[in-house]
Design a protein around this nucleic acid. Structure first.
Length: 274
DNA sequence: CTAAGGACCTGTCGGC
DNA sequence: TGCCGACAGGTCCTTA
């Protein structure tokens, strides 16, 4: 479900409710996510005050004095801040109960999510090989050019590779390629320098616009308070197969195909095939 | 090294 | 109405 804009929206949503509060208890109802939730989570967290809520790619980072709790929401995960006594439903796998009757609840029907502990002063293996943040200055055309050089894999698959750049999932990869006028199946190494410049700019722009709208709600994404995100109405290609291209004067119709096992959308007019 | 495909899960939707 | 397959916002691991 969540790509970078959705995770950032959640980060901003939960932080003000929880920062400065101590964890009073941890409830694990279902430890079997993609990896088992560590059994000693409560020992790490009990009594610790939450100092900050960060994000690296699609990982949320809950910083405590003794370490960091990593949360990845996978395809279907969501987090809500709830009152202290909120009855749990199906797929409510984990609660962090904070002082002052605040409860952070992880809900994840598909259980592709991840939760793990990173001790102070260590780097978790999940974070060790991540590429630059797309909205930071070290994500630039020169970096993408270096990553694309000599690669035959489709450009869409390259920009979705978290070692190249983090946080770009299926929706925003499709959107950014449309905005840059690049066909998703083009071999990465064949892109011309101006195309790579445009693509970097498009990725930045699409992600920033989506964050400003609170992310994309297709079916079940909600912010920490339960509201949807409004970027869905700004999607140019994702989920729009058969509909007309939005580019003024284009007149193409959006097509759908599969690239690297993921649904891919593009306009055959303004994103010429390889 | 690169790239592709399966695996992990449940829910929903469309077709018959 | 009910069943069955396809598909869904992600990543890790194995295989070629």
């Amino acid at each position: 479900m969540p790509e970078l804009p959705e995770v950032e929206t959640i980060r901003r949503g939960i932080a003000p409710h929880l920062i400065g509060r101590r964890v009073e208890s941890v409830v694990v109802r279902q430890p079997r996510l993609r990896r088992p939730v560590p059994a000693e989570l409560a020992e790490h967290l009990d009594g610790q005050p939450l100092q900050a809520v960060g994000r690296r790619g699609k990982y949320l980072l809950l910083h405590f004095p003794n370490g960091t709790l990593l949360i990845h929401l996978g395809m279907s995960g969501s987090l809500r801040v709830l009152p202290g006594a909120s009855p749990a439903g199906r797929h409510d796998h984990l609660d962090l109960c904070f002082e002052g009757e605040r409860r952070l609840r992880l809900h994840d029907p598909r259980r592709f999510g991840l939760v793990d502990w990173q001790a102070l002063g260590t780097t978790h293996p999940w974070l060790a090989r991540l590429g630059p943040e797309p909205l930071d200055a070290d994500f630039h055309a020169q970096w993408l050019t270096q990553q694309a050089a000599g690669r035959r894999r489709p450009i869409k698959s390259l920009v979705m590779d978290s070692a190249v750049v983090v946080g770009v999932g299926n929706i925003y990869a499709n959107e950014a390629l449309w905005q840059a006028g690049i066909h998703p199946r083009r071999p990465a190494g064949d892109l011309a320098p101006p195309e790579l410049v445009r693509l970097v700019e498009a990725i930045r722009q699409v992600l920033q616009a989506a964050i400003a709208q609170g992310g994309t709600t297709l079916r079940d994404f909600t912010r920490a308070d339960g509201r949807p995100g409004y970027f869905a109405q700004s999607l140019a290609v994702y989920g729009r197969a058969g509909e007309p291209c939005n580019r003024p004067g284009c007149g193409g119709r959006i097509e759908q195909t599969v690239i690297a096992q993921r649904s891919s959308y593009y306009c055959p007019q303004c994103q010429p095939a390889p």
